[in-house]
């Protein structure tokens, strides 16, 4: 990409408005339609940006009770052109992971695709908080790889850099922009004790290690971590009726719930709390990297650490597991 640009707040807003609808985090940290550019907090908002792309509750179809097959109305993908302002690099990178789930032939999700195609991601660099760990994954708070445009707040506007050809084209529509040298990317925060990502194969090989059960004691499977995780994608399909109107819905679900894998007959392969904790950690740090070399199922946003009522720290846990596994491997060798 070319060098950076300097743009004013007003001209950015004007260009975004011209493009279409605008979304940004509201005061409650949820993604909402807005008319102006909100003042953002220093770090990521409470909710990940995935809410706009794969909402917790999405209609598949609806019909009236007793309707014939011809009257089943499929939900139409939302193709409103627009932009999302205030996307943080961790959340944007998480979308790349969701792309692998929802844009994978032959079963593309047209709703997700319509949002990805029509929404421009306007990133805003953040001031990392105490539980931000993007540095663990090799990027920083102003990373522009997964957004269309990355902005850095300045006293009199924004320093802007394009992250994609689409972003480049958009920046050309912002009036009054002046070329400015792009700042060097900032390194991301990571814990001082962190020594590197775990080996996915070693984690998997220790599927039956007693440490999972030990860690299970400190987890109550409340599932808050997955609810706020920008990369978690699991859902369920169910029908709901309300006053004679029936909806077929895709509803967010999470692997920590006891009924996630409970089958209709009552058999549940993941009955024990520790097995569900293990599933979550292995999925992120072993299964996804094994299936997609170079990717990890976590982008270091740290929401799970912020919100865990049991004060667990995912990274500390992963580190502790690997330390134990490595120590035992050394002892054997």
């Amino acid at each position: 990409m070319a060098d950076g640009m300097k743009i004013s707040r007003d001209s950015l807003l004007a260009a975004l408005r011209k493009r279409g609808a605008l979304w940004a985090p509201n005061d409650a940290g949820r993604w909402a339609a807005v008319d102006s550019l909100p003042e953002l907090g220093p770090i990521r908002p409470r909710r990940p940006v995935k809410d706009l792309f794969t909402p917790p509750r999405r209609e598949i179809a609806h019909w009236k009770a007793g309707a014939g097959p011809a009257e089943i109305e499929p939900a139409q993908p939302d193709e409103t052109p627009g932009s999302v302002f205030g996307v943080r690099p961790c959340d944007a990178r998480a979308l790349l992971l969701l792309d692998r789930a929802f844009l994978q032939p032959p079963h593309l999700d047209p709703h997700y695709q319509a949002r990805r195609d029509n929404l421009l991601l306007i990133g805003v660099a953040c001031q990392p908080g105490p539980n931000c760990y993007c540095g663990v994954f090799g990027f920083g708070p102003d990373d522009k790889d997964a957004v269309d445009v990355m902005l850095t707040l300045q006293a009199d506007g924004f320093a802007a850099q394009a992250g994609s050809p689409r972003g480049q084209a958009f920046l050309a529509t912002v009036s009054g922009g002046a070329a400015a040298p792009a700042a060097a990317p900032r390194p991301g925060p990571r814990p001082d004790w962190w020594t590197g990502l775990p080996d996915p194969k070693a984690l998997y090989a220790n599927f039956d290690h007693p440490i999972w059960r030990e860690l299970g004691t400190s987890c109550m499977n409340c599932g808050v971590c997955t609810q706020y995780c920008p990369t978690c994608q699991c859902f369920t399909v169910d029908d709901e009726s309300w006053k004679g109107e029936i909806q077929r819905l895709r509803i967010v679900d999470n692997c920590q719930r006891s009924d996630f894998t409970r089958m209709a007959g009552g058999h549940n392969p993941r009955q024990v709390a520790a097995s569900r904790l293990r599933q979550r950690m292995l999925h992120k740090f072993s299964y996804i990297p094994t299936q997609n070399p170079g990717l990890v199922g976590c982008t270091g946003c740290g929401r799970c650490v912020d919100l865990c009522p049991l004060d667990r720290n995912l990274f500390a846990d992963v580190f502790e597991i690997m330390k134990r596994i490595n120590q035992e491997a050394e002892r054997v060798a």
């Binding site: 814990p191 004790w193 030990e214 004691t217 400190s218 650490v305 049991l310 004060d311 667990r312 720290n313 990274f315 500390a316 580190f319 502790e320």
Partner: peptide
Amino acid sequence: VLGYREHPLSQAVVATL
């Protein structure tokens, strides 16, 4: 025994068995 420990890395208090 179920009790509390300080996690050596995160320094947070977590449950332990």
